[in-house]
């Protein structure tokens, strides 16, 4: 059994490194992105082999799925937007490549040495997490929302910041073909695609809700559910099954910010009830965390969808009222 698992792991790591190599070495960017998506899928399998199903879920949804879609979307828009000057890559340099290979081998040897040292380390933080009473059965959710709530709070803030920064790049009235050219409209959007996307919506909501509920005591949680929901939203937006909501609407802004706001509210409740921010009062810890996670799921979905779909072109206001 050990021999079989060793063979599987060697194959898996080897394929992952090869996929990364192909993604980095390829001079055709489309090809590079395709290999990067393969790399992400293989990474998800590696997380499973390391018994980290929560990370595997996030990697499959975000690392392979969303990041790949983001890159393909950008490439597609760049291709359609205007005449873009072709990139002239540096000529291949054997000495450079050889130095890289040498560094690679050296680093691997160093890591093997470090691994030997680490082998003697104690059993890690898992017993500590398991031994601390908390409302969450799933230790990863417990760390994310109970013990290390600040990390997650700041994570949501970074996500929102990325959305705001993206919006700020496209001020009102500035035409931006590379950002706002609609992608999948016209004849290629057949009836079949529309049917598929509409059918996907209830399934996506079901899966996201399941992941959210399950996250309390098994792999799953707000981020995994949020990405599933985001994927469905993105499909609906890029296939124009629904109109792109303007980022200037209050509803849109609320949907994007509601995660951070809810988190701050929970922090305030903790401050009021037990004197420390994010210290969930024991009488309501589980419902509080579950409610927070539900809101986070929606907000993460909205933010990720906004990042991928981008900002629709907003026509300028009537002249000379815009002070900015």
């Amino acid at each position: 059994m050990d021999a079989i698992s060793l063979v599987v792991d060697v194959l898996l790591v080897g394929m992952t490194v090869l996929a990364a190599l192909a993604a980095v070495a390829s001079r055709d960017v489309f090809r590079a992105v395709a290999f990067f998506i393969v790399f992400g899928a293989l990474m998800a399998l590696i997380w499973l082999r390391l018994s980290a199903p929560d990370v595997a879920l996030a990697e499959a949804a975000v690392g392979a799925g969303l990041t790949g879609v983001l890159m393909l979307e950008t490439l597609g828009r760049i291709r359609r937007a205007s005449d873009v000057e072709p990139v002239r890559e540096r000529p291949r340099h054997p000495a450079f490549a050889a130095a890289g290979a040498l560094a690679l081998v050296g680093a691997s040897a160093a890591a093997a040495a470090v691994a030997m040292v680490l082998e003697r380390a104690p059993e890690g933080l898992a017993p500590l997490v398991a031994g601390t009473p908390g409302p969450m059965e799933n230790p990863v959710t417990a760390v994310l929302l109970d013990f290390r709530g600040y990390d997650t709070l700041l994570e949501i803030a970074v996500l929102l910041l990325a959305v705001i920064a993206t919006m700020a790049l496209y001020p009102r009235g500035r035409p931006s073909p590379a950002a706002t050219t609609p992608l999948t409209r016209g004849p290629e959007r057949g009836m079949l695609l529309g049917w598929f996307v509409r059918m996907l919506l209830p399934v996506g909501i079901l899966v996201a809700g399941y992941l959210w509920w399950q996250g309390a005591d098994a792999p799953g949680g707000a981020f995994q559910g949020g990405t599933v929901l985001a994927a469905v939203l993105i499909l609906m937006l890029v296939t124009a099954v629904v109109e792109l909501p303007s980022p200037r609407w209050l509803v849109t802004r609320l949907a994007l910010a509601v995660g951070l706001l809810a988190f701050l509210a929970v922090a305030a409740i903790g401050l009021w009830a037990s004197g420390a921010p994010l210290d969930h009062p024991s009488f309501a810890a589980k419902p509080l965390i579950l409610a927070l996670e539900a809101v986070l799921t929606l907000a993460i979905a909205a933010c990720l969808a906004a990042l991928v779909v981008g900002v629709p072109h907003v026509p300028p206001r009537r002249p000379s009222r815009d002070g900015a």
């Binding site: 004849p187 290629e188 057949g190 079949l192 695609l193 598929f196 996907l200």
Partner: peptide, 24 residues
Amino acid sequence: ILIWGLALAASATIAHLVANLAQR
């Protein structure tokens, strides 16, 4: 079985889209 159904619907849709694009 749900995963199987989703993969089936997705592959049918994608095949349709790719073939459509190739034809155009």
